[in-house]
Design a protein around this nucleic acid. Sequence first.
DNA 1: TCGCACATGTAAATCGTTACATGATTAT
DNA 2: ATAATCATGTAACGATTTACATGTGCGA
Lengths: 212, 212
Amino acid sequence: MLAIRPWSAYELTKQMRRSLGYCWPKAESVLYEEPKRLVALSLAAVTDEPVGNGSRTRAVYAITDAGRAELRRWLASEPAPPRFEFEPLLRLLYADAGRKADVLRAVGATQTWAREEMERGLEQLEDYRETGGPFPHRMHIIVLFGDLVARLLEAVAGWAVEAEDEITTWPRTSGLGMTAATAERLDGLIEHAHAVLARMDNGYGSAPGVPG
Amino acid sequence: MLAIRPWSAYELTKQMRRSLGYCWPKAESVLYEEPKRLVALSLAAVTDEPVGNGSRTRAVYAITDAGRAELRRWLASEPAPPRFEFEPLLRLLYADAGRKADVLRAVGATQTWAREEMERGLEQLEDYRETGGPFPHRMHIIVLFGDLVARLLEAVAGWAVEAEDEITTWPRTSGLGMTAATAERLDGLIEHAHAVLARMDNGYGSAPGVPG
DNA sequence: TCGCACATGTAAATCGTTACATGATTAT
DNA sequence: ATAATCATGTAACGATTTACATGTGCGA
């Protein structure tokens, strides 16, 4: 974030809620500790600014040339794969050790979460469209970023709605095995996965209906 | 996992690759340490089995009644929200500090990852359909689980293909701002988000085209 | 029989969160 | 003026990963 502009730790926490948190969620305390580490490594420089009208100060951090170089080095390195930490799904996975109400609550909470995140994201996007946002020169990046977040949230929301419907029909949580609904869903999943993989192999970009 | 059946630590690591890892990724060493903690808490019991023909043994862990009770307690508690750790997206977010080749590599790696995960998941699902899988009585859960994973992977894959196409057209990484493509994508995102939210409010399940 | 992958763990170091503490500002 | 919230941090504890260590069976 320091590559964009200098920030105080508190500003970093606010900015994390707006953007970083969608792909790299951390506790806020990290945003207070980590800049100090960067300064120790000479990757950032700190300036103490007076806050308000006097006694207290706050630390404002700015990137250094060495910091930019290190960032470039990192950007050129091999990326790690994505990791999804999805506790509600973990609860579904062992749902047969608990009550129906428990899974339903986990799935319902997921749905609520997805909707709220979408509302929050939508507000931000509308603000960007109207005002240009705080970093208009970065919109080409931000919108692409928002695109993935939106797709992920929609996937979660759509799933949660369907899962809730299906689980509601369960007579209990354990031992149901391959019900008719499950068999149908399984077939659909397999077919759909084949289709998606085939499309990816052909190159996604080709017009629909065009062979080859 | 011990609620399903007893496992050795190594078996737990294999099982994590098959299922748990999709929603709760951890280092394998956890699967060796954590069961010992469970035993110390009397939530699991350990049995030393001879391995191969003699000298060495392995620890096999089984859940206890107290363990089942604790699991039920946990299942009844409030779930934590999902968290996406998405390093390639982090790289996109600061792409304007690096080269075009860097972002393209991050996006390309994402696409490859998604495809490979889909292939792996598809194999598992097909195996389940043909053989019933190792836990046929749990298929109603497993398929619903696979459904979300598939949706997430498809979201990622679709995005990666589109993002790659768009980034390829960038003349450089920084300062492009609101290009025509970005403006169009932003409008699409906003409209689509509105539509999805409206559908969720009306209840997803209603037939398409039916008002109210 | 040599090497490699499978199987079974342990220890140190780091990463990250939760809980606490306290000054400043705003709303009532 | 007082409470609530914003802003700015720190420290202890716990969670996680990385690196190491070593036996075992199998294929070339």
